[in-house]
Design a protein around this nucleic acid. Structure first.
Length: 514
DNA sequence: TGAAATGTTGGGGCG
DNA sequence: ACGCCCCAACATTTC
């Protein structure tokens, strides 16, 4: 395979391929790339062959212990529906399979193997994923089909930089963001995004119009919850490629120019809301990067905001760089001394945090926004994470698990980096003694209390003066707002200043292990 | 992408 | 006028 160090392999290869004889049948394996545009694997499969099998395999066991959470599955269900509709417009059927315990096929490999044998397919293409378990599985699949003599190729589609390309001078992975991103920008050589393939080859004749053993419908994947709690998610989002581009346009037309400031205020729509779309590959970072570069940037402030936003794509790149190069960090702290951190266990405190009943309005607002919509504003994620880890002394792993199950944008790389950053045990992490004060953060970033009032309606009538510290409100103010603390809304479950002291003590305890 | 504690400065009140 | 104190405002250090 021709490899250019910075990711031009596919363009080079596509050129090469179009000069070659077409293969008979190609398999395009759909994974976290639920889009038609800017999709190199799909491009390769459609160009290379007389007939094509587009296949999605639901095999959550292969991602254990991080099989998709409930919110993520709701998103996936809808995104797949939308993807299949897009394919149908091009007269193409997407085959769907389940693999694992209790299914016709034990594994993804078995599904692909069956399809390959059945159709005598001679090539297989997919876009890369970077979670350690998935990388391991994909390597096996690649080796398996190469041994069988197939043309097997994977592509960079969901990152600007492969996690292994960017290295320090000592040829090590970066562990600090700023030099990492600087290095990335020095190497950035952005190709324009690919278009939707112009031609979609049909299914091989012996598969067309037949029921294929083990294949199923989206509904049969059983991704939707049995108790209908997902209306909030459905109202807040439009999963799928079209929804992704619509949201991007909205962001680019309205708020990206003020992003640097606006992104800090959860009550306004100052952020891009691209994260779930990016996670499922409904849009590529290259498409976003390109679109931002093409914006009018005559004003200095806007230019600055654009860079700040692109830097967020940089953090996304960095998280994948980290999970790939430090593959055990999904469960273990990168900084080893944190294995000795005296994390507490308390069902009661954990439950209060999860349900938004901590007595700290900004924390509770965030946790309830998460529960209702499957998303939480990033500023608030930092606040609630700091609160869990430093005020409640509950482990970042416990927080990561909850986010994993409730976020529609749950992404192993990003979730891991975010939580390790918050706990202070990761790469380029917040120093441990950096403890957010939920009251001050609330007053700074939700100064009118609008965000709190939206998600903690029992406080809605409380005046702005007390909205972030209701326990300090005079009795008259509380009665006038119809609030009885301790029954309508909880008193703080811990005293922040006391909790901060305890956290700093716990930090002292770690020093002996450095 | 912190916050609290501690230090410094300078204006104003006041004897 | 002067020295002293207070304290807000800002800066620096510390966790």
């Amino acid at each position: 395979m021709l490899i250019d160090k910075y990711g031009h392999e596919k363009e080079i290869n596509l050129q090469k391929k179009s000069q070659e004889k077409k293969s008979a049948t190609s398999i395009y394996w759909i994974r976290q790339d639920l889009r038609l545009r800017d999709n190199p694997a799909l491009q390769a499969a459609t160009k290379a062959s007389e007939s094509m099998i587009a296949v999605y395999v639901w095999a959550p066991d292969e991602e254990s212990p991080w099989q998709p959470g409930s919110a993520s599955k709701v998103w996936l269900h809808q995104s797949l529906q939308s993807l299949i509709a897009e394919y149908q417009r091009h007269d193409t059927t997407v085959l769907i399979f389940k693999a694992g315990k209790g299914s016709t096929y034990e594994s993804t490999l078995q599904v692909l193997d069956y399809l390959q044998a059945k159709t005598n397919a001679d090539s297989i293409y997919w876009n890369r994923c970077y979670e350690p378990k998935i990388v391991e599985r994909d390597k096996k699949i690649k080796a398996h089909f190469k041994e069988k003599g197939l043309e097997v190729e994977s592509f960079k589609a969901n990152l600007l930089f492969e996690p292994w390309e960017i290295r320090t001078k000592e040829d090590k992975p970066f562990q600090v963001f700023t030099p990492y991103w600087k290095n990335c920008l020095n190497h950035l050589d952005l190709e324009p995004p690919l278009r939707t393939p112009s031609h979609f080859p049909p299914l091989p004749a012996n598969l067309a119009d037949k029921k294929i053993p083990g294949s199923c419908t989206i509904d049969e994947l059983d991704l939707l919850p049995h108790i209908k709690w997902d209306t909030g998610i459905r109202e807040a989002w439009t999963p799928g490629e079209a929804g992704a581009h619509k949201q991007l346009k909205k962001f680019l037309n309205a708020t990206v120019g003020d992003y640097a400031e606006a992104r800090n205020f959860p009550a306004i729509q100052g952020v891009s809301r691209m994260s779930p779309h990016l996670h499922f590959g409904e849009i590529s970072p290259r498409q976003i990067y390109n679109a931002v570069q093409q914006l009018d940037s005559s004003s200095k402030e806007h230019r600055h905001s654009h860079q700040v936003y692109l830097k967020e794509l940089g953090w996304r790149e960095f998280s994948h760089h980290l999970i790939f190069n430090f593959p055990t960090t999904d469960l273990h702290p990168l900084r080893k001394e944190f294995e000795h951190f005296p994390w507490q266990k308390s069902q009661k405190l954990m439950h209060a945090w999860q349900k938004g009943l901590t007595g700290y309005p900004i924390v509770d607002a965030g946790m309830r926004e998460l529960w209702h919509t499957g998303i939480m504003h990033n500023r608030v994620r930092m606040i609630v994470a700091s609160f869990l880890v430093k005020d409640l002394l509950l482990s970042w792993q416990a927080g990561a698990k909850w986010f994993w199950d409730t976020l529609v944008d749950a992404d192993l790389a990003q979730n891991t980096m975010g939580w390790q950053w918050s706990a202070g045990c990761g790469a380029d992490a917040a120093p441990y003694f950096r403890v957010f004060n939920p009251t001050l953060q609330g007053q700074k970033f939700d100064p009118q209390g609008e965000y709190v009032r939206q998600w903690v309606p029992e406080l809605a009538k409380l005046s702005t003066k007390w909205i972030h510290e209701p326990w300090k409100a005079p009795a008259e103010a509380l009665t006038a707002s119809g609030i009885k603390l301790g029954s309508d809304y909880p008193l703080p479950i811990v005293d922040h200043s006391e909790a901060r002291g305890l956290a700093l003590q716990a930090f002292q305890h770690l020093k002996q292990y450095r």
